[in-house]
Computed example of a mutant assay.
Amino acid sequence: MTGTGTAVWLVPEHRGGSTVVTVTGTLVLDTYPDLRDGLLKIATDAPDSVIADIGGLRIEDDTLASVFSVVAMRISDWPGIPFALVSPRPEHRAVLAGRAVDRFVAVHDDVGTAERKRDSPPRRRAVQLLAPTTGASALARRFVTRVCAEWGVPAHEEDAQLIATELVENTVRHTVSAPRLRLELRRGIFTVSVGDDDPRPAVLHERLSATEAGLGLQLVAQVARVWGCSRSWSDGKVVWAVLTTRGRPGRRAG
């Protein structure tokens, strides 16, 4: 609840192939961050797609509908899953079209239609829960090697090992959580992510000398097209990196 007496509520329901989020309340300037961050947190834990049912949402200012474009662009970086909106209300459709939101996000009348028409690119996912010990990074590297061989993407193995090592070591060093390593492949895009139960934003370790443990932020940025840290709906976080060709400067997702 905000100081103006307005609020937004998000209730996620995990279904077979999608996470449907029922959004109610009032979208005003004060609740804009709550809606944006809430949808991004839910997307962090969603396996295949996110569908936001906004039929019960009141939009006070048409310009604030841009929040859905922002969410769509953030999700396109990671986790790279389909995102759609649902509302049977003509005034919603008019606002979304007027603000060009429907150019970035598919808009449907009902959840069933959204599920039938979603673009679900073929994806592979492999998850490994690691013990929070000093040997976790070695196990992570072996896991990456095995998965890259199974998926037939040996070109990603070296970069994925480097990223996985840094992210796992940061989790072990700075939290008391067991690192959750996740590898994904979709449309030729390979991602590495590590989740934990600590809500504090991740600060990638900057190596100060050649003998110090850790790969450092500069190397992570060099081998990743984009990387970032996303809060999860379960109050933890996921640090992730999207791989591309070697030597290409990366950027931090905003």
Score class of each variant (00 low, 15 high):
Gly3Arg: 09
Trp9Ser: 14
Trp9Arg: 15
Val11Leu: 07
Arg15Asp: 14
Gly16Val: 14
Ser18Asp: 01
Val21Arg: 00
Val21Pro: 04
Val21His: 06
Val23Gln: 05
Val28Asn: 01
Asp34Tyr: 10
Leu40Asn: 02
Lys41Cys: 13
Ile42Thr: 12
Thr44Tyr: 04
Leu57Phe: 05
Arg58Lys: 14
Arg58Ser: 13
Asp61Val: 11
Asp61Leu: 11
Ser66His: 15
Val67Leu: 03
Ser69Met: 13
Ser69Val: 13
Val71Pro: 02
Val71Met: 02
Ile75Tyr: 13
Asp77Gly: 13
Pro79Arg: 10
Gly80Arg: 14
Gly80Val: 08
Phe83Trp: 01
Ser87Lys: 07
Val95Asp: 00
Arg99Gly: 07
Ala100Gln: 08
Ala100Thr: 06
Asp102Gly: 01
Asp102Phe: 03
Ala106Met: 04
His108Asp: 07
Asp110Tyr: 08
Thr113Val: 05
Arg116Ala: 15
Arg116Tyr: 06
Ser120Gln: 15
Arg123Met: 14
Arg123Asp: 11
Ala131Thr: 12
Ala136Ile: 00
Ala138Leu: 08
Ala138Ser: 07
Leu139Asn: 11
Thr145Gly: 12
Cys148Pro: 08
Glu150Phe: 07
His156Cys: 10
Asp159Thr: 05
Thr165Phe: 07
Glu169Thr: 06
His174Pro: 06
His174Trp: 07
Ser177Trp: 01
Arg180Ser: 12
Leu181Asp: 02
Leu183Cys: 09
Arg187Gln: 11
Gly188Gln: 03
Phe190Ala: 03
Thr191Lys: 04
Val194His: 04
Val194Asn: 09
Asp198Cys: 10
Ala202Leu: 01
Glu206Tyr: 06
Glu212Asn: 03
Ala213Leu: 10
Ala213Ser: 11
Gly214Glu: 01
Gly214Cys: 03
Val220His: 05
Trp233Asn: 12
Ala241Gly: 09
Val242Lys: 12
Leu243Asp: 07
Thr244Phe: 02
Gly247Arg: 02
Gly247Leu: 03
Arg252Ala: 05
Arg252Leu: 10
Ala253Lys: 08
